[in-house]
Structures are given as C-alpha cells and as structure tokens.
C-alpha cells in the first residue's frame, strides 16, 4: 500500500459517493411529493421480475459452457434447487441444499 491517508479518504469517498448516486437517483428524480408518472409506475411493477433474472445471469457471468467442467456444477445445482423448491417449497432448504451441493461438486467432484 503506497497511499497517503488523505488519498485514501478521497478515493473511498469518491467510490462511496458514486455508489450512493446510483442508489439515490430514482428517488431524487421522483421525490415523495411528486406524482410518479404512469410509465415509471409500470416499470416499477415490471422491473423486479426482469432484474432477478438478470441477477442470476450476473452471478453466472464467468461460467463457461465451452471449457471444463462445462458449467456442470452450476447446471446440476440450479436444477436441484429448482426441483427441491417446487417439491418442498422451503426457501432455506432449497438455498442451503443447493449451495452445499455446489460446494461438494466444485471441491470434490469437478476438481480442476
């Protein structure tokens, strides 16, 4: 680490402010007293359903179908989570079971 304290304060403040900006922007544009336009209300209703799908892809962004192990740990784990969740409808079981299976797969089965 070759930085002065003031450089680090400046650096972390900038990253903090940039992050806050991305989080606060919609609330600044549509403050409490202002009516939310119809189109934005429509987006607010529909976006949660699209973003979660985007987030799943975001989590898997570094997974390759073309390289060993051909995304098999991810495919097997997600398939298991899906079946487990539709069958037992227990969120913690599905998440815990899926993550545990994934750990076993990447630590012991698809060791590369």
């Amino acid at each position: 680490m070759n930085y002065t304290t003031s450089q680090l304060i400046l650096f972390f403040s900038i990253v903090s402010l940039g992050t806050i900006l991305t989080r606060v922007l919609p609330f600044v544009i549509f403050p409490e007293h202002k009516e939310i336009p119809k189109y934005i209300k429509y987006l607010a209703d529909i976006l949660p359903f699209t973003i979660i799908g985007m987030l799943v892809v975001y989590c898997l962004k570094n997974v390759s179908l073309l390289r060993v192990p051909f995304a098999l740990p991810e495919i097997i784990s997600i398939a298991t989570i899906t079946i487990l969740h539709i069958w037992k409808k227990n969120t913690l079981l599905s998440i815990g079971g899926g993550a545990l299976l994934y750990m076993i797969l990447v630590q012991y089965v698809f060791v590369g």
Binding site: I14, T19, T22, F27, A44
Partner: peptide, 24 residues
C-alpha cells in the same frame, strides 16, 4: 479518482433499476 468514479457508476448502474422498483 476520476477513473474510479466512472468505474463506480459503470459497475453499480444496475442499482438504478432497484430504486425505480422500490419507489412506491
């Protein structure tokens, strides 16, 4: 610092959608 700011906006842009979704 400027590069860091632009990178922050790019990496975190997805937050804007979260805000829009939670407005109500």
């Amino acid at each position: 610092p400027i590069g860091a700011f632009l990178m922050t906006i790019a990496v975190n842009a997805r937050h804007i959608f979260y805000g829009v979704s939670m407005l109500k």
